[in-house]
């Protein structure tokens, strides 16, 4: 194994993805090859409908490819059993979505630590409850949400919601943060602050893959790839 391969955390090879829309077959990804290195911030730029979200879901093991494969630290994600892939998503990946996707019935702190609960058994969950709450509070505090722990998502602004979503993605200290248009639903200033936050995380060593249609957002990344008609084009 070469050094460069050793440093690769995620590697996608000849990824194809078809969707059926009625009688129509949509060939969304047409042979994507991409590698993500440890500590790297990779940005994938693409117009809406270019398949960038699909690529992100495949990299995170949330969706399965029609052809091709994804390796995580050299292991083929899609040779995992469904249960193991669930555990993989929980332990190694943090998803951040454009529409935040918080659970409306839970408060800010609960929304943050739910990822930690999902990974634990009933007993383990009860045992680790205090430490999870502690860690969740600290994390939220560091994201400027220390006063908002007991609030519900609907009581928060868009930027605050996205910060809770980022806290949720970070709670299990994932190897890779996968962000899908994290600023797409925010005004310019708020979006900038979220990007500052992500940049700070990156500086601390967080590996990140972000997809966006916004070239100014992409400027902050280490490396930018363009997704056009289902294929990656180097910038």
């Amino acid at each position: 194994m070469t050094d460069s391969q050793n440093n690769t955390i995620l590697h996608a090879q000849q990824l194809h993805k078809h969707y059926r829309m009625g009688s129509e077959d949509l060939h969304v990804l047409r042979g994507v090859d991409v590698s993500v290195k440890h500590g790297e911030w990779l940005c994938i730029l693409g117009a809406s409908g270019s398949g960038k979200s699909t690529l992100l879901h495949l990299l995170g093991g949330l969706d399965t490819p029609s052809e091709g494969g994804v390796t995580f630290n050299g292991e083929d994600l899609f040779s995992y059993s469904a249960a193991k892939r669930d555990r993989f998503r929980n332990a190694h990946v943090g998803f951040v979505f454009q529409f935040y996707h918080l659970l409306p019935e839970l408060n800010v702190l609960e929304n943050t630590i739910i990822s930690g609960m999902v990974g634990r058994s009933m007993l383990g969950g009860f045992g680790a409850r205090a430490s999870m709450r502690q860690r969740g509070s600290e994390l939220l505090e560091s994201l400027g949400l220390g006063e908002r722990l007991k609030h519900r998502p609907k009581q928060l602004s868009g930027g605050e919601r996205q910060r809770v979503a980022i806290a949720r993605a970070l709670i299990n200290q994932p190897d890779v943060l996968l962000a899908d248009e994290p600023t797409g639903n925010l005004d310019r200033d708020t979006g900038q602050r979220i990007l500052d936050l992500l940049q700070g995380l990156h500086k601390d060593g967080q590996t990140m893959v972000m997809v966006t249609h916004d070239a100014t957002v992409a400027d902050r990344a280490d490396r930018v790839l363009k997704l056009e008609r289902g294929r990656l084009v180097h910038d």
Binding site: R87, F88, R89, N90, A91, F95, P104, I114
Partner: peptide, 13 residues
């Protein structure tokens, strides 16, 4: 949507 979120953060079927 909640079910989708839970699945994304690693909850099993």
């Amino acid at each position: 949507r909640d079910i989708g979120i839970l699945r994304a953060i690693g909850a099993s079927r």
